[in-house]
Design a protein around this nucleic acid. Sequence first.
DNA 1: GGTGGGCGCTATACCGGTTTAGTGGACCGT
DNA 2: ACGGTCCACTAAACCGGTATAGCGCCCACC
Lengths: 340, 340
Amino acid sequence: MKRPTIADIAQRAGVTKAAVSFALNNQPGVSPTTRQRILEIAREIGWQPNSAARALSDGRAGAFGLVIDRPAGILGAEPFFMQLIAGIQGALAEGHTALLFTVAEDRQAEMELYRTWWAQRRVDGVFMVDLRIDDPRIAVLRELALPTVVVGAPEGSGGLSAVWTDDETAARLAVEHLAKLGHRRIARVTGMTDLWHTRIRTDAFMQAANEAGIEAHCVTADYTAEGGADATTALLAEPEPPTAIVYDNDLMAVSGLGAAQRAGVDVPGELSVVSWDDSVLCQLVHPALTALRRDVVAYGAHAAQRLLELAAGGAPGSRGEAPAVLTPRASTAPPPARRR
Amino acid sequence: MKRPTIADIAQRAGVTKAAVSFALNNQPGVSPTTRQRILEIAREIGWQPNSAARALSDGRAGAFGLVIDRPAGILGAEPFFMQLIAGIQGALAEGHTALLFTVAEDRQAEMELYRTWWAQRRVDGVFMVDLRIDDPRIAVLRELALPTVVVGAPEGSGGLSAVWTDDETAARLAVEHLAKLGHRRIARVTGMTDLWHTRIRTDAFMQAANEAGIEAHCVTADYTAEGGADATTALLAEPEPPTAIVYDNDLMAVSGLGAAQRAGVDVPGELSVVSWDDSVLCQLVHPALTALRRDVVAYGAHAAQRLLELAAGGAPGSRGEAPAVLTPRASTAPPPARRR
DNA sequence: GGTGGGCGCTATACCGGTTTAGTGGACCGT
DNA sequence: ACGGTCCACTAAACCGGTATAGCGCCCACC
């Protein structure tokens, strides 16, 4: 089976390749009737532009890239990326842009991949996730002048475009929910502290607690199940343990719930649990977890739109997303009556 | 920053583009010294082939495709695909092949994507997952003559190449494990019955039970948490409920465990649970789940190698993977002493 | 009725590789 | 000394699009 080219169309229409190109790209230079005839033939023989030819000619690859460098083990349990990709794809489907997706060993490998993609003209731009403080990837991407949209980072970090969620509001929602239930001493189990994302959440969380007039502190973990369990155990062993814990992702929340239960701590009777990110996981466990839910698919779609604009020569700029909403479930309740 | 081309190299070396091309591709036609000089210059200025130019010239896209059409909600909680992609990427990284990855709404959209990719010459081949009985995608892929490796399907299905796991052995491992513990009446909660994969497992499971001389039956679910819970509830409500249940994936197993516990059934005291697919999830819940574990990363790598061979003109053919191994954890134990 | 301008189209260069045909020179044998 | 081979390399076509210069023709205008 041979793919039709514009030369085939040109021959059938009795015109030259150029005329066909004009017609197909809504360029002036052909009469309405000829244009109509050409479009008709193209449709009939099922012509589609050869992406390589187009890429070579106009100097754009017709593809964006996305690399994730978290270890494969963690990744899978995170619904976030699949939803993000679904959203990106939705926004890209209409045009002639594809998505190159890869998981890398580490950040070093990720940066090399950017260089390779750039050198081979594989992509017109990339999505970058898990931005870190003083992230070395930024320098690489700027050096390569590769259009980049940072997903989930603050506005204008490093001059790059970004799409990010309003974590201040989310933090306030969670804290106020707990404060309203009567909690006066809460904690949060965070992701890696060198993630921008974590720092922002920490600042927002502490400030919200401050405003609500309750005590709060954060302990560091690493998004893994083990990390969540260990942090929980440590928190419960404190002299005055918190009566509620907020976890930075669902995996740690579920794992922390398990650790608490194993330690004989009743949830939500003695401890309330909130997950900062919702997924089936949260509804799967018992009790089901109160969670902050955001529309990740829309998030991906907006990131893709932003990158499309950027790659088309648009000005860099950022866009905030609608804040997460709190979905109360069975894992949060008033704190136990004062002991002591 | 401008990307160097072979013309740049040619100029610096004082030869023509053709000589450079010969040198870079280990083609005869240049002297060893000239070849050396050219390679040196290429390395020095960091030349990489423009993928579009190469694709246009030699008629291959330099990329493979992978589409998943499960709803985004389920997907995320399945570590399988991320690991598969990691494996594929590992095998592809060395060469000049990229991976186009997409999640599609449904099979219709998936097939259209194949057509588009083919028409635009975007990919040299695709990986196909979740093969169904009488799968319409096969006809499309054959019509397009798009090299395809089916992941997780039986040998030679529809004449396509495949990479699949030995589910017979896996089924025997699970059944024997339960039989040895003393179970005489077991059940299995399956994925969608029109998946090849499910049918094979069902046959293998029933035969293994038959050989072990114990009673077994399967109930159909759909890989979702709800499906797993509902099926579990139904099984436990049977006049003579099974003393052990095997679930086709970790999500259903975890969810089934929760349903059983909510119904007041003790695991593993009254019911043993086995998950056919291992992941953090299985270790996260309490009790931790006995699971069949396979090396998904290697699986992906082998699939990629197979597709590379196929796209290079190799003969179609299939390859079996090492069977899963059973990892016993706390969720399996001897059945309760006979009531009645 | 000559001229200028715009329209509709053709011819062709170009993107950056690969590939084929061709060429000049060294070296060989006789 | 001369024809034949082989070797190292050059010139140019080609892949399938896009973009630009140019050409013939019709029409308006004074």
